[in-house]
């Protein structure tokens, strides 16, 4: 490995021991270019090096435009060594909550995600679940979700993530958070968030590897959901300058990352250097 001279500010997140790592997927491992997934330079190798070092790694994503199994297959196809039980998207966590609380969802989700909700009772809905529906965020579909909510005595809206936007084909596009905010405003309610930055979501991922928040680092390209969310849980949050990253993120009014790195490869270099 090349020896690296890194500025001390970048190293800050590594002062205390790191015993587990959470990685965001979109914008950290891969980008979407011309409708195709492309590994971000150095990321395949970075994941391999991290795993080879014996560090427990989990992939913590708000991806809701595809099922977990399809997501894992896509990652494997572009070279990542990832297994399904290491990947934590919001849909399986949402199904668990729906079952526990006897909720029957009206789904406003991407058609490709529907198999993850197979088997959930959807007749006579008593809540609305939204994900990143992309083109399915039409007025008609939003209106149908609204009409379901407003007809309930106590409207329950579950939002899989609350991201503001993300990068697709080198363009920024609206994320589910925009549509969550729209339905909240229309009904005068607050949604429950499943996925990042929900504390319960982060903690359930940590418990899968018996990791403590104060010993864990989260690496992501979303200054609020990834970095801010992880920090609120007691983890360290590292921002990468890939994916949807914008220079203005470094002056975010509320969130100050423990470190900002160029990409995942650099974050892993730092992690392994002092291990």
């Amino acid at each position: 490995m090349v020896s690296l001279e890194l500025p001390s500010a970048v190293m800050a997140f590594n002062q205390k021991p790191v015993r587990a790592v959470l990685l965001d997927i979109s914008g950290v491992l891969k980008n979407c270019v011309d409708g195709k997934d492309v590994a971000i330079k150095g990321s395949v190798d970075a994941v391999n090096r991290l795993k080879a070092s014996g560090m427990p790694v989990r992939f913590c994503t708000n991806e809701t435009t595809t099922t977990r199994s399809a997501l894992v297959k896509k990652l494997q196809a572009i070279g990542f060594k990832v297994e399904e039980d290491e990947v934590f998207p919001p849909a399986p966590a949402t199904c668990l909550i729906l079952k526990q609380r006897g909720l029957r969802p009206h789904l406003l989700i991407h058609p490709a995600l529907e198999p993850d909700f197979k088997g959930m009772e959807q007749k006579d809905p008593n809540c609305v679940v939204i994900g990143d529906a992309q083109e399915s965020f039409s007025y008609q579909n939003m209106n149908a979700a609204f009409q379901t909510l407003i007809a309930l005595d106590k409207p329950v809206l579950i939002s899989m993530g609350q991201g503001k936007y993300y990068s697709e084909d080198n363009k920024l596009v609206l994320d589910v958070g925009a549509y969550k905010a729209a339905l909240e405003y229309a009904c005068g309610i607050q949604a429950e968030v499943v996925g990042k930055p929900s504390q319960a979501f982060f903690l359930s991922v940590l418990s899968s590897m018996n990791a403590k928040p104060e010993e864990t680092v989260m690496v992501g390209d979303d200054i609020e959901s990834d970095v801010g969310g992880a920090q609120k849980c007691g983890m360290r949050g590292v921002l990468v300058r890939t994916g949807k990253y914008r220079p203005s993120d470094e002056q975010h009014p509320k969130v100050k990352p423990d470190s900002i790195v160029d990409n995942l490869a650099q974050a892993v270099d730092i992690l392994l250097k002092t291990k």
């Binding site: 503001k164 609206l174 994320d175 958070g177 925009a178 905010a181 729209a182 339905l183 405003y185 229309a186």
Partner: peptide
């Protein structure tokens, strides 16, 4: 209003 709010949020 909801669509204005969506743009404001993001």
């Amino acid at each position: 209003g909801p669509f204005v709010t969506a743009l404001e949020y993001s």
